[in-house]
Design a protein around this nucleic acid. Sequence first.
DNA 1: CTCTGTGCAAACACTTTGCAGCTAA
DNA 2: TTAGCTGCAAAGTGTTTGCACAGAG
Lengths: 156, 156
Amino acid sequence: MRGKTDTEATGHIEDRMEAFRSKCRATGLKITPQRMAVYKALLESMEHPSAEVVFRQVRKTYPSISLDTVNRTLLTLSEIGAAFIVEGSGDAKRFDANLKNHQHFKCVKCKRIIDFHHEAFDCLHIAENLLPGCTVLRKTVYLEGYCDLCQDSHKG
Amino acid sequence: MRGKTDTEATGHIEDRMEAFRSKCRATGLKITPQRMAVYKALLESMEHPSAEVVFRQVRKTYPSISLDTVNRTLLTLSEIGAAFIVEGSGDAKRFDANLKNHQHFKCVKCKRIIDFHHEAFDCLHIAENLLPGCTVLRKTVYLEGYCDLCQDSHKG
DNA sequence: CTCTGTGCAAACACTTTGCAGCTAA
DNA sequence: TTAGCTGCAAAGTGTTTGCACAGAG
């Protein structure tokens, strides 16, 4: 495996767009401008946007796109493994196309999701027989607790 | 730390109820029969029940309890760290009072959540400076991909 | 006695679904 | 040409909120 860098996720947008096009062909999905735009917006966003946020972004380029299409597209992306639904466990779903390993911390109090990155967590090895017959597309370490801002309030 | 076994989560219900009562006092929550019943039902369930499932269970003991109370109680539990919201990312929220480390695999296709347990994942060390000021209550390794049942469908 | 918790029901928010026209292949 | 995609709008589901009464501390 060739060296991967931290910038891989943010850089090479075009490469990933091309890979996405291939994936669409492979899975029989049509390559529509809307679909491309949604995926691109997701790639360029590093903040786990909700469908609404993606919608607003995409509309800058495609003013006629509807929120429903964005919603549906994001769902489709998640089903082919081109995007993932973040463990939002709250209000609106949050999406993420950043397939690079990374980690999430969620505050149980304010529900805020903090991203962090710890090298060691990227190297988790999944034993073959752990999930027989399953294909693992993504690994995430998910932490929960009190964030710095809520640290005090729960002691009161 | 005294030895912990895999049965700790299912056994010692009373111990954990008592610990919960202490936690309630510490956080200023009142000890009501409903609250105790909801927590107990969650403790006894190993299947990440939704609020509705907990509701049905609790109602066997407290026929007069309302679904709203169950919902609200589960939310409260999650805010004091006595329960956690599973990365349901789908329909209804799923709850879990099993604080013992364990892992989840979610199929991106059928949304099914498969529990598994891998010793090595229990021992993840969180560096102090990784999340300054935060208190980590729970660690979960979260995997996504295609489950055995959906393995073929995405290739067609 | 006081304040939190509960139950009931309405209000909300987000998501999903159906259908007709459009467009990629 | 044809099957899938998009856009519009309505329906559905689960969640949240307000208020009055009841119960814990």
